[in-house]
Amino acid sequence: MTANPVDADLAGELSASVQRLCAAFPAEYWRNADASHRFPVEFREAVAAGGFLGVAMPEQYGGSGLGIREAALILKAIAASGAGASGTSAVHMNIFGLHPIVVAGTEDQKSRFLPPIISGEHHACFAVTEPNSGLDAGRLETRAERRGDRYVITGRKIWISTAQIATHMLIVARTGGAGLSGLTLFYSPLDRNKVEIREIDKMGRAAVDSNMLFIEGLEVPVENRIGEEGDGFKILLHGLNPERILAAAGCVGIGLAALERASAYARERVVFGRQIGSNQGVSHPLAEAWAKLEAADALVARAAALYDSGRPCGPQANAAKYLAAEASFEACEAAVLTLGGMGYAKEYDVERLFRESMIGRIAPVSRQMIFNFISEKVLDLPRSY
Rank of each mutant, 00 (worst) to 15 (best):
W290H: 13
A11H: 09
T184N: 05
L299K: 06
V222N: 02
V300Y: 03
A324E: 05
L180A: 03
A23P: 04
A104F: 08
V18G: 02
T175V: 05
G239W: 08
S278F: 07
D209K: 08
T88I: 14
E107T: 09
Q275N: 14
A207V: 09
R261G: 07
A56G: 07
E260H: 01
G50Y: 01
G67M: 00
G255H: 01
M369V: 14
A331D: 05
G63H: 05
R367Y: 11
L75D: 06
L14R: 11
I374Q: 04
R267V: 07
G12F: 00
V6R: 12
K157C: 10
E229D: 14
G253Y: 00
G105P: 09
M57W: 01
A266C: 02
S375K: 12
D201E: 15
S357W: 06
F113T: 01
E356L: 08
S328Q: 10
L259I: 02
F96K: 07
R146D: 04
H123G: 04
I165F: 04
M57P: 01
R174P: 08
T338Q: 00
A295G: 05
S81D: 03
S64T: 01
K202W: 06
L21V: 09
P100H: 01
H168M: 03
G281L: 11
S375F: 10
G105T: 07
E330N: 13
L293S: 06
P5S: 02
L140W: 11
P116A: 04
K202A: 10
E196I: 05
I171P: 03
L135D: 15
N279R: 15
A345P: 05
E130N: 09
D380S: 15
M93R: 00
L218D: 10
A325F: 03
F52A: 06
I359Q: 09
R150M: 12
D380L: 12
N279C: 09
L190R: 01
K234N: 13
R269W: 01
I226A: 05
E229C: 09
A77K: 07
A304W: 03
G97R: 05
I362W: 08
R355F: 14
R352G: 06
V208M: 06
A266N: 00
K110T: 10
L135I: 08
A266F: 01
V18R: 02
I235V: 12
R311V: 08
H123M: 08
P242I: 03
L135N: 11
S328A: 12
Q280K: 14
S86V: 07
A77F: 03
